[in-house]
Amino acid sequence: MSLDDLNAEMEESYAEIGDELAVALDRETRNELALLETALEPEETDELVRRAVHMLFQTTVDSGKLDFQLRSGYDVTYDEYLSGMTFDEMTGADQYPSMDDERRYQF
């Protein structure tokens, strides 16, 4: 897979999610959400869920787990995704022809 594949799948997921998402909660999650709502008093419960997604995303980026998953599945990193170019494209390494080791030292 490649950066183009990642972009295509991201656009597809973004469209599928839409503006609202119905989420089934188990007992533990419902209990934790109720406690957070009581303690933090947000305007809406949705705000806590949005914050939770942001925190999970940031933690995943900071720990390197996102890069690991992206490299494993798409052979790119988060920085490459953000820039829209792979490291080889940024450095120009993909512009040179591959070396033929058998003919490398022949004149």
Rank of each mutant, 00 (worst) to 15 (best):
M1S: 07
M1C: 04
M1P: 08
M1G: 06
S2N: 11
S2R: 09
L3W: 01
L3E: 02
D4K: 06
D4M: 05
D5S: 07
N7A: 11
A8M: 05
E9D: 12
E9H: 06
M10Y: 13
E12C: 14
E12M: 15
S13A: 13
A15F: 00
E16N: 07
I17G: 01
G18E: 06
A22C: 03
A22I: 07
A24N: 13
D26A: 05
D26N: 06
D26M: 00
T29V: 10
T29D: 03
N31M: 13
E32A: 09
L33T: 00
A34W: 01
A34E: 09
E37G: 09
E37H: 00
L40Y: 09
P42G: 13
E44K: 13
T45C: 09
D46Q: 13
E47F: 07
L48M: 03
L48C: 04
V49D: 02
V49Q: 05
R50V: 11
R50F: 08
V53D: 01
V53T: 06
V53P: 02
H54D: 12
H54T: 01
H54R: 13
M55P: 02
L56A: 14
F57A: 08
F57I: 05
T59I: 06
T59R: 15
T59E: 15
T59S: 14
V61Q: 01
G64I: 05
K65Y: 07
K65M: 10
K65S: 12
L66C: 02
L66D: 03
L66N: 08
Q69C: 02
L70H: 02
L70R: 01
L70K: 02
R71T: 15
S72A: 12
G73I: 02
Y74C: 01
V76E: 03
V76Y: 00
Y78H: 14
D79L: 09
D79M: 01
E80Q: 09
Y81V: 11
Y81G: 04
L82T: 07
L82K: 10
G84V: 01
G84P: 07
T86S: 05
F87W: 14
F87P: 01
D88F: 08
D88E: 08
E89R: 10
M90E: 11
M90G: 12
M90T: 09
T91C: 12
G92E: 05
G92M: 13
A93H: 06
Q95M: 03
Q95E: 06
P97S: 07
P97F: 00
P97A: 11
S98V: 09
D101K: 13
E102D: 08
E102M: 12
R104F: 15
R104A: 15
R104I: 11
Y105H: 14
Y105K: 15
Q106H: 10
F107Q: 03
F107C: 00
